Amino acid sequence: MKIVLTGSLGHISKPLAQELVQNEHDVTVISSNVERQEEIKTLGAKAAIGSLADTDFLTNTFTGADLVYTMVPPRDFFDPTYDMEAYYKGLGENYAQAIAASGVKKVINLSTFGAHLNKGNGILLGAHLVEQTLNALPEDVSIVHMRPTSFFYNLYAYVDMIKSGGIIAANYGGDHVIPWVAPVDIATAIAEEIETPFSGRKVRYVASEELTGNETARILGEAIGKSDLQWILIPGEQVRQHLEGVGMNKKIVAGMIEMYDALYSGLLAEDYNLNRPELGKTKLVDFAKEFAGAFQQK
């Protein structure tokens, strides 16, 4: 099968490319970084170097593919000019235009849990908009929206806080459950969908482990030699002051606080809870080993 992957050699796209190549698919990886070209070829895939903002490039790259995997690459949250909603909306429209023009009939789109909401989900609204844009394609285009939960690697954001204050403090977590996921488990789930015939529109949630904030802190604390590490619940206003104080885009900060408020209240995971997936193989104790290495090197 001829498959085109976006996401360059990121946390999900790299292990996905490796698995697909191993399964003898013809894989093309899109990257904006020409320096990734040789590494992509080393994996056994083809490299397509260009910009996701260039719909002609996307159309040409998608043409002839049996399936494309779409995702929206992250941007710098500290860029004061970054309009996240517009960015997601623009890329969603670019993807839809290229899919229609190229004749691709199967799409797997990386979305997120909380994307079922058209409000109240903070910075996840962009993923909702991308889903809606792709769903507006003709019915003969089959789409699977992958909705992973909170990424384990987001916990790296608390390294400095743990070092300086000895705690994890946030406006979510505490004794409330956080569904965590490892990128490799997302890649495995996507590969499973690629190998399974699908039609119409489908949503698949992906998670690796469900833990409270307190359980998360305990596991990380044991890995870094701080068995008394606590997850402290703080007001969103306190989070806002901290994030704006370190220079984060104010609109992004507001969106993050709303997102985590929705996670804590259960709003964000309401549809996930109705469609809870089989959990992946990777657990927090596995990630905690990597976290401990990063913690010691910081």
Rank of each mutant, 00 (worst) to 15 (best):
G64C: 08
Y205N: 10
S142K: 15
V104I: 14
V27R: 04
A136F: 08
G236C: 15
T59D: 02
I186G: 02
I40E: 04
F151R: 10
L220C: 08
L43Y: 13
D26M: 06
H25S: 03
K119Q: 13
N171C: 14
T212Q: 11
G10C: 05
I3Q: 06
V34P: 08
K2L: 03
A254F: 03
A115Q: 01
A262M: 04
F287D: 01
N275F: 14
I232T: 15
N275H: 15
T55H: 10
G247H: 11
A115G: 00
V184C: 03
A262I: 07
Y172G: 08
F78Y: 14
L117T: 05
I234R: 15
R276I: 14
G50S: 14
G293T: 01
K119A: 11
L134R: 05
Y158D: 08
N118Y: 05
A45P: 13
A269D: 12
A101N: 13
I232D: 15
G213M: 10
D83L: 10
K283R: 14
L233Y: 15
I162P: 03
L125Y: 05
D140L: 11
L284K: 03
D76V: 01
L129A: 02
V159K: 05
D160I: 09
I40K: 11
K41F: 11
P73G: 04
Y264E: 05
P235H: 15
W180I: 01
S265F: 06
Q296S: 12
A136C: 05
K106C: 02
E85L: 07
